[in-house]
Each structure stands twice: as structure tokens, then as C-alpha cells.
Amino acid sequence: MFKRLMMVALLVIAPLSAATAADQTNPYKLMDEAAQKTFDRLKNEQPQIRANPDYLRTIVDQELLPYVQVKYAGALVLGQYYKSATPAQREAYFAAFREYLKQAYGQALAMYHGQTYQIAPEQPLGDKTIVPIRVTIIDPNGRPPVRLDFQWRKNSQTGNWQAYDMIAEGVSMITTKQNEWGTLLRTKGIDGLTAQLKSISQQKITLEEKK
């Protein structure tokens, strides 16, 4: 169930391209415009997507990853294993993690069937560096609404905000991946996880038929 919630949630996290980005210092504006741009692209490019579902990787690479804190999220997933990894191991892992996100997020976007969304009203940021933004996803086919909290983090150097995690039903996506990959990290280390991520990233994206 959580895996499905995570995939549905990713439908609204794909941010804007650099040329049309919203105010990078306001995570609420980023979330709002990102959702609108993403849904528009999914709707307008269905012919290309249906002809070649792996085209979704391109959308992810162009529109999402430049505005997601990939390395920060990847380091959180590694936890204690990050500090013990060599620079070469980290570089290989982050490259594999990025390719994994292209496949995983692309597969999530393949679930698009006309969903709509509501974003919580903007709250004062103050001096906060981590801000959760509640998004409610509404399914046109009558499924119950899904309420999610996207975690946005302020870059201490640039002042810009980027998304790095999502919490559904009190469970963090980062925590879920830590639990899912924990045994592999304990037995085969970061190299074993890197190899698995490379394998997963090679899987073809498949479209979910409308139910």
C-alpha cells in the first residue's frame, strides 16, 4: 500500500525546468507551479508516452532531478554507511541512485490517469530550513484521497528550496528505503546496493492501464 502511495505522490513532485522555475526561495510556489507544469506535460505528451513509456525517463531527467536534492536524499538512505564509504564508492552510488530515480519516478508518472491535487495554504517560513507541505491527491475514479507531506529543505548556501522526502501515513519514503535496503547494505555494503540500483534502473517502464 505504501509503495502505491509513494508512486501516486511522485506525480506531483516533478519540479519546473530552470527556464520557467518559480521563486526558488518559496517552496509553496515551487510546489504549486511544479504540480501544474507536471500535470500539463503528462496530459499533453501522452502520444509520446504511450508510444514509448521510457520517454518518461527524459521527462524526469529534464523536469524533476535538477530540483530534487538527489545527493542529500541518497546520503540519508545510506545512513551510517555513508561515512564509511570511499569517495569513489559515493560517486558510483550517487550515479546509480540518480539512474534509479529516473526509472522509479518514471514508473510513478506512468500512473497518471487524470488525477488532480490540492496544496495546503502557504504558511510563514520564518527562519525554518525544513518545511512540510501537505498535498491532497484526488483520484477521478473514486479512490479515497491521498494526503501527503512533502519535505522541502532550504539550501544554506543559495537560499533555494528543494524537495527531498515524502511522508505518507506517518511513514517517510527515506525511512522506507532504509528499511528495504538495510539488509543488503549490511551483507554486501554500498557496492552491493550500487549494483542492485544499476540493475533496477535497467527495467523498462510500463504503463498502468486505467481501472
Rank of each mutant, 00 (worst) to 15 (best):
F2K: 01
F2M: 03
K3G: 07
R4N: 06
R4Y: 15
L5F: 05
V8I: 00
A9C: 09
L10M: 05
L10D: 00
V12N: 12
V12S: 11
V12F: 14
V12W: 12
I13F: 00
A14H: 09
A14C: 01
L16K: 00
L16G: 01
L16I: 12
A19Y: 01
D23S: 08
Q24I: 00
Q24C: 05
N26Q: 00
K29A: 09
K29S: 08
K29R: 03
M31E: 05
E33R: 03
A35R: 10
K37I: 05
F39S: 01
F39M: 06
D40W: 04
D40F: 11
R41K: 15
R41H: 11
L42N: 08
E45T: 04
Q46R: 08
P47Y: 01
Q48S: 00
Q48L: 12
I49W: 02
I49C: 01
R50W: 04
A51K: 00
P53L: 15
D54E: 10
D54F: 01
D54I: 07
Y55S: 09
L56H: 11
R57L: 05
T58S: 05
V60R: 06
V60G: 05
D61R: 01
Q62N: 14
Q62L: 04
L65R: 06
L65A: 06
L65N: 11
Y67C: 15
Q69L: 08
Q69T: 08
V70I: 15
K71Y: 15
G74P: 12
A75D: 01
G79V: 05
Y81D: 00
Y81H: 07
Y81R: 03
S84D: 06
A85M: 02
A85G: 08
A85D: 01
T86N: 14
T86S: 11
A88D: 00
Q89S: 12
E91M: 09
E91I: 07
Y93V: 14
Y93T: 11
Y93F: 00
Y93L: 06
F94C: 09
A96I: 01
A96N: 13
A96L: 07
F97D: 03
Y100F: 03
L101N: 01
L101F: 03
L101G: 01
Q103D: 03
Q107T: 11
A108R: 13
A108V: 14
A108S: 08
A110S: 10
A110T: 03
M111S: 09
Y112G: 07
H113D: 11
H113V: 05
H113G: 09
T116G: 09
T116M: 11
Q118P: 02
A120Y: 15
P121G: 08
P121F: 08
E122K: 08
Q123M: 05
Q123V: 04
Q123W: 12
P124F: 05
T129G: 08
I130P: 04
V131R: 09
P132K: 05
P132H: 05
P132Q: 13
I133G: 12
I133W: 12
V135L: 10
T136P: 08
P140G: 07
P140T: 07
P140L: 07
N141H: 01
P144C: 08
P144R: 03
V146C: 09
V146L: 07
L148K: 13
L148A: 13
D149Y: 06
F150P: 05
Q151D: 07
W152N: 04
R153K: 12
S156C: 15
N160P: 11
W161L: 10
W161Y: 11
W161H: 11
W161F: 12
Q162Y: 06
Q162C: 15
A163Q: 14
Y164Q: 14
Y164M: 15
Y164V: 11
D165W: 14
D165T: 11
M166L: 07
M166I: 05
I167S: 02
I167F: 14
E169A: 06
G170P: 09
G170M: 09
G170L: 15
V171D: 07
S172P: 10
S172R: 12
T175A: 15
T176R: 06
N179C: 07
E180C: 06
T183I: 03
T183P: 10
L184H: 08
L185I: 08
G189S: 13
I190P: 08
I190T: 02
I190H: 13
A195T: 09
Q196R: 06
L197P: 04
K198N: 09
K198D: 12
I200W: 11
S201L: 03
Q202Y: 15
Q203G: 10
K204R: 13
T206K: 02
E208R: 11
E208L: 09
E209C: 15
E209L: 14
E209W: 12
K210S: 13
